[in-house]
Design a protein around this nucleic acid. Structure first.
Lengths: 218, 218
DNA sequence: TTTAATTTCCCCGAATTCGGGGATTTACTA
DNA sequence: TAGTAAATCCCCGAATTCGGGGAAATTAAA
């Protein structure tokens, strides 16, 4: 008896390749594929899946809402989330919403099939990074005294680097930062390179997002 | 540079086979093996491990206490728990104590090596069954928050625009966003222009900062 | 005192973003 | 049915950022 899988994903390319992968593997069967969850309940009733693969980032109603609806109407069906990013809140929300697994889109085809089986059997496959975040949610309410340790983890940015990063978060360009800090454009670039290195990022947007989310600057 | 692994396990047979497995695999190195944790701190200082494998069921001081001590004195070292049974309380306690991974003793040798790497890289490998239990801990405290009302101020962004903005916050370039959303580079640009107009900004960094601070995207 | 880290400045070429146009299709609505 | 909003795609030129180099002065630490 094959495991019936229904997929919700707005990325047509990915949807197609998953379709081929799953439907072409013995023991698996595609019950349905849908580019959005506008008709979620009807789609599920029609396709009768054992396992649902759901993209998190979807236009219109997103995957998080999707899981909530699924678990409300079909509590028995296990839903595995697929995402392009390991966004903290997404992970947390998806799990609270009732997701049973959480894998990245970059997961290898063979691993995806494994994960489907695991979910079907009542397990919860997660990428190790996601798993670490999940553990983090459980571990955080424990500690309060080691705030100094966390705040100390400001990625070892120097004062000047933090200043530059702060300017960046406020929307300034390199040229404007140079003006603001009374240094040359090239010096700003030097600092930026160091900041990228220390934050493990490669663009202004990533740096800004990390600076805000990790509360490196305020 | 090999990953240095130190093992604490009272089962001598298992300890030996793990020793042979790990020390005999390229990229791994046994830093030390100990049948109990009576001299935990000294043992760790002596062996200087990157990763610790710790059995939960040990005579005397058990593995849970062991993790607590390790994380208190060596917060940087990641500890992976090994257990014969998937006992609910053990899982929960170990995680709260600060364990970074939780695998069964029945795990295959190749998978054990994988898990060690994952833990070393900051991930949290767990058996699917353990993972499901962990999710259970998070799913039970269902909280009804009224955050949705505040987030209504989404600057009249369309779904597509929010999607693009979300990608931006995750550090994607125009090209990557185009790929992700299955649209062309030029369409991304069109959306970006609209986003800038609606958010009253003029650069990626400003858009990202506003998106995060105003909670336009999750 | 020698090393290491910080802060400063410069160049080049490639890649990316920005501003300001224009255009088409679809879908909803007045 | 005409009009509007959304989503899609295209071009040009200017401005900006990125990666990978190098280098010098100051300061802190070993």
């Amino acid at each position: 008896m094959a495991i019936r899988v229904t997929i919700f994903d707005d990325n047509k390319k990915l949807l197609d390749s998953l379709d081929i992968l799953i439907d072409g593997s013995p023991g698996f069967q595609i019950a349905g594929t849908f580019p959005n969850i506008s008709n979620l309940i009807a789609d599920i009733e029609k396709s009768q899946p054992d396992v649902i693969l759901m993209d998190i980032e979807m236009p219109g109603i997103n995957g998080i809402e999707g899981v909530k609806i699924v678990k409300k109407h079909f509590p028995k069906i296990n839903v595995m989330m697929q995402t392009a990013f390991e966004n903290d809140e997404h992970v947390f929300e998806a799990i609270c919403a009732g997701a049973s697994g959480y894998i990245l889109k970059s997961t290898s085809p063979s691993r995806i099939l494994e994960c489907i089986v695991e979910v079907y059997q009542g397990g919860s496959p997660m990428s190790p990074t996601v798993a670490r975040k999940v553990l983090g949610f459980l571990q955080t309410p424990k500690k309060e005294s080691n705030q100094s340790d966390e705040n100390k983890d400001d990625y070892n940015l120097t004062n000047r680097e933090k200043e530059v990063l702060s300017c960046l978060v406020n929307g300034l360009s390199y040229k404007m930062i140079a003006d603001q800090c009374n240094i040359t454009y090239e010096t700003v670039r030097s600092h930026m390179k160091k900041i990228y290195e220390k934050l493990h990022v490669a663009s202004m947007t990533e740096a800004v997002a990390k600076a805000i989310n990790k509360k490196i600057v305020m």
